[in-house]
Amino acid sequence: MRMLAIASLALLATTTVQAAPAAGAGGLAAHRAVYDLSLKDASERSGISGMIGRMVYEFNGSACEGYTVSFRFVTEIATGEDSRLTDQQTTTFEDVRQGKFSFVTRSYVDQKLDHEVRGSAEVSGDGLSVDLDQPEKLAVDIAKARFPTEHMIELIHKAVEGERFYESRIYDGSDDGDKAMITTTILGDKQPVEASDAEAKRAGELADDAFWPVSMSYFEETAEGDGLPVYSIAFKLYENGVTRDLTMDYGDFVLQGQLAQLDIFKPEPCVEQ
């Protein structure tokens, strides 16, 4: 469910080696987006007969103070005659100027804590220095990678510049927090909203704005050759970083996420020192 972290945004970021360009002429929007989730497809091997849920994603902050992301991803999964409730809660903080990132993710199954990942990472030389507190104490150095905010800035900059395919590496603290992932991204040409697009009408002030269709695949760093992605995601991306019409493919099953509500927040003031 790393795509939630991928959707985090910022106005200006530094990468592990060089500065990333600002994302869009108007910057990126602090916002709260609610998505209704449904099962689009599932293989027989998955054992899943049905799935519904809701995802709430909130992005706040400023270039001066840093950026926070808070999201909750709740699903009810039916498997034959049984069902289980999963609840993933994540909060992150990213200081894009100092190249620092911290995160906490708690995953619950049927309201009982199943897994917790807590730690931080920062740019160190030509790589990242990662310090984990949970699930166990661990310090590890990994190759250079973008944090989630940086990654979104890169994505929007590529789209604005007309680049249609690129590869990147991202670190977002997911799984056990001890590794990065390789991403490949395909960007379509900017498209106008169709009159029949009911979801667009729920995007408030963005309802009539054009968007880019985006498809991203995630691979393990150790994958060789033409290995299959761990998962992939497709979505419609606005220039201010808001996303909608999500399709999340986890291999054995595919989830659809439709925007149910969008609130754009007033940006926090940022006075340059």
Rank of each mutant, 00 (worst) to 15 (best):
A5S: 15
L113D: 00
S232Y: 08
T16D: 12
T68M: 09
G188K: 04
V17L: 15
V74N: 05
V69E: 02
P267Q: 15
Q258W: 00
A20W: 06
L9F: 01
A195H: 10
S196P: 04
L12P: 02
A78M: 07
P229D: 10
A25D: 11
S107A: 12
L39V: 09
E154H: 05
C64H: 04
E163R: 05
A78C: 01
M216T: 14
S232L: 10
G66I: 03
S232K: 11
Y67P: 04
P192Y: 06
A234I: 09
T149V: 11
P21R: 08
S215Y: 14
V109P: 01
D178T: 10
L85S: 11
G53M: 09
N60V: 12
K179A: 14
S168H: 00
S196D: 15
D133T: 13
T14P: 00
G80I: 11
R84M: 14
T75K: 08
D245Q: 15
A143Y: 01
F103C: 08
C270T: 11
K158S: 08
F73K: 01
A210T: 10
V104E: 13
S174L: 02
G80F: 10
S43A: 12
S8W: 01
R169C: 01
Q88N: 12
A234Q: 15
S38P: 02
L228H: 10
L39F: 09
S120W: 05
G61S: 04
L132Q: 05
V109A: 11
H157V: 08
T91W: 01
K179V: 00
V230W: 01
L128C: 06
D176R: 11
V160T: 09
S232A: 15
L28V: 08
D245H: 14
A203C: 09
S62K: 07
D189Y: 02
F235Y: 15
D133E: 15
S174T: 12
E194W: 05
S62L: 09
F219M: 07
I170A: 08
L255P: 13
P148D: 04
V123E: 04
A159I: 03
F165L: 08
P213G: 12
G50R: 06
D82K: 13
S124R: 07
A159Y: 02
D131G: 06
I156L: 12
